[in-house]
Simulated scan of single mutants.
Amino acid sequence: MTIRWERPGPVRGRILLVHGELSQSSTWWWAGPALADQGWQVSTVDLPGHGDRPHDGHPLDLPTLVQGVAERLPGRVDVIAGHGLGAVVALALANRFVDLAQAVVLEEPLSSREEDRSALVEAVVAATTVARSDLEHLELQLRGNHPQWRPEDISHATEAIAATDAEQLLAGLRLPRPWDLPALVGTLRVPALFLVAPDEPHPSGTGRLSTLRGLDRLAAERCVPADRFVVLPGGHHLHRDVPEQWLRAVTSFADEVCPPRED
């Protein structure tokens, strides 16, 4: 699926949104129109093996995901904004195609640490197992785990998990070091904004919120100015957890790196 949002009138610039693991393009149902209301032409595509995007049965490794997005690019864009696995894809895209975008927004990029990927694999297995057996139960789980989400977020997330090619996603995640986040960050040649959750125990005692930890988090924080490593009070899904704050951060950054053209 390819979705595009834009409003009549002068176009401010182009933004490409790249969804994360176990998700699909409809995760941007609110963010896309909100960015369009501010004059941006916004597009998004399903990653291979996600949403309505069929896959050839091979593991969903990073080169496969990057190529899958590259094949459906709307042309040169001003900003690529990715979430989770999509943030890793956005990094790889910007490194591979140096003239593709002027900047990237990286929302909770997935860690390359083995222990974090193991936890992610467990979460993918758990969610997709429930999706295969009882979608209503999955929806109830999502509501309980994310009480701040809007009803549309719950329905889109439920649908996306059920549609994911879990076998091939897991095959990609289980590859030895499927990506090297510090290396991707270190070779980035365009401005970047990191949007991350707190890397500290939650007041409720449920543990860490961010998926970006350890040396990966340190490498990300060191590669950008302090005001471009933004900690928002949510979890891994910041565009759903704190959508208004996500929007303010993204538009402020986009306005800075892509200033309006004077007539």
Rank of each mutant, 00 (worst) to 15 (best):
T27Y: 15
L215C: 04
D180F: 05
P191G: 07
W30F: 08
P8L: 01
P260A: 04
L142N: 05
L106Y: 07
T44M: 01
L91S: 08
P74R: 00
S43C: 09
H202W: 11
G186V: 02
A123Q: 07
G205I: 02
P259D: 00
R174I: 06
L195K: 07
S112C: 07
V121M: 14
I3W: 04
S204H: 13
H58P: 03
A127Q: 09
P176D: 12
V257M: 03
P198Y: 08
T164D: 09
L17G: 13
L65D: 01
L47G: 06
G84I: 01
R177G: 10
E159C: 14
V105N: 06
H202F: 06
F97S: 01
L209W: 12
S25K: 00
N145F: 13
A131C: 09
L35C: 05
L110T: 12
E114I: 00
G186P: 12
L73S: 02
L209T: 15
L120F: 08
D61S: 03
I161K: 11
A127F: 14
W29V: 14
E152T: 14
L175I: 10
P147W: 02
A249Q: 10
Q141R: 10
V66D: 03
V69P: 15
L138R: 14
E114R: 07
P33L: 02
R189M: 09
P203W: 03
E221C: 04
D227L: 03
V77N: 02
D56G: 03
T211R: 14
H237K: 10
T27V: 13
A249N: 07
V121H: 12
P203Y: 06
L238P: 09
L173W: 08
A103V: 04
L60S: 01
L195W: 00
L142M: 12
D78Y: 03
P10M: 15
E71W: 13
I161H: 09
L142W: 05
R7Q: 13
D216S: 00
G68T: 07
E107A: 10
G82C: 07
L181G: 07
A226K: 15
S133I: 13
L175D: 08
R222V: 12
W149V: 00
G234A: 13
D134N: 13
R248K: 09
I15P: 01
L188V: 14
I15T: 11
I80T: 06
A34L: 03
W5M: 09
P74A: 03
E244Q: 13
R4G: 10
C223L: 15
A220Q: 02
G214H: 09
G49T: 04
A197I: 03
A103I: 03
A160W: 07
P243H: 01
D78G: 05
L193V: 08
C258F: 05
Q245W: 13
P203S: 10
I80L: 05
T2C: 08
R150K: 09
G235Y: 05
V125K: 01
R208D: 10
V77T: 03
A94T: 09
D153T: 06
W5C: 09
D134C: 14
V79G: 10
L195V: 05
P243S: 02
N145I: 02
E152A: 08
I80K: 01
V45A: 05
A162D: 15
E136L: 14
P259I: 11
D61K: 12
P48C: 01
H202A: 15
R213S: 08
